[in-house]
Design a protein around this nucleic acid. Sequence first.
DNA 1: TCTGGGGTCCTAGGACCC
DNA 2: TCTGGGGTCCTAGGACCC
Length: 420
Amino acid sequence: MYALVDANNFYVSCEKVFKPALEGKAVIVLSNNDGCIISRSNEAKALGLKMAEPAFNKKQYLKENNVHVFSSNYALYGDMSNRIIRVLETFTPRIEVYSIDESFLDLTGFKYDNLEKLGSEIKRTVKQYIGIDVSVGISKTKALAKIANKLAKTNELYEGICVLNTKREIDCGLRNTLISDVWGIGKQYRKFLQANNILNANDFISTNDNWIRKYITVVGLRLKKELQGTSCIPLETMLPAKKAIATTRGFGKIITNVIYLKEAVSTYATRCSEKLRAQNSVANILTVFIHTDPFSKDKYEYLSKTIHLDVSTNSQIELAKFALKGLKMIFIDGLRYKKAGVIVDGLESANNIQTGLYSNCDFKAQKQISEASFRINQKYGRDTLKLAIQGDGKEWKLKQEMLSGKYTTQWNDIIKVTST
DNA sequence: TCTGGGGTCCTAGGACCC
DNA sequence: TCTGGGGTCCTAGGACCC
């Protein structure tokens, strides 16, 4: 059996932990640049605020309805997420961290014979230790656990814990799950399946294998087996190394001057370098892109350049150099740029780098510079030592006008308790 | 008029997830 | 003025090998 533990309204819940006065209020968290609504308290949902809705055209409405608005604070959410995972690990070592607010637990050989009791024990412990409400779905496969979790969240009768174990429970669960709520069925497949009169999860498993294979590929077939109780999506307890790493950001305001694009692009290359190092990888393909505002009346321009590196690297200096080289090739003067990004690809372990036969680069010196810079920044904070070209970011940094404190990761932001 | 049979690797595009 | 930022997997098609 698998349990899927999923935090309720996760980002909003994190904010509430440190501002208890928000309890019972409409609260939302916005995406980067304070763009879209990406987390909503139940009260905010009741007001009709939609997931991924742009916030700018709701400003008046948010004000009128006294909605509390936050910029996203990933330092806080990431740390809270780690704390929840540590609590879950006290229940079983076999755990897959599926996303920032979701984990699958393998319940094989568990001492509890009563799964509902186990579910409520997990829920109660996370709430007590971390202050966050979670929902627990338990069933025979990961796809079924997903369905159980969805039911636990949406049907109050379950009180946050839903177990689908017997055939009767599973049948009933599948019948009550819309096809759009099935894990792996997105917008396109939903439309297609509905057009073919497949409206819920039970309709889906009643559909012919070959038909599913043909139209929804082997992925769809695997999903069908999972929903029938045959596990074929294994639990991944080890975090697999990433195959691609990206750092892309929209700017706080429109950029026209190439100097600011250089600052941004070299900074994003630096972030990629940090992420590569964190998983002991090097990359041999780098893509840099810049584009204008897709929502503007002006013609949308997307410019990108992919560069194949002779020698794989995770060096900040090397990656920034190639990113800037690519930028130079694609930059067109006179456009109004809204976003840029650097993507590194062709990742392999840093332990076995293939050096170039004719390369005259001093890799040893490169490595020593990287190591030194990495240690300095780790000790004194990000970008203490940085490339001059990175600049100060003042012109293009994210808009974050309603950012809460980094309560759990910054000494200065720890909440103060006073008695009166 | 007629032109084999088996592979691999890479890339772009489209679907999905959070 | 203002619309996020990451990732994954699968398939088809093209280029190439013998």
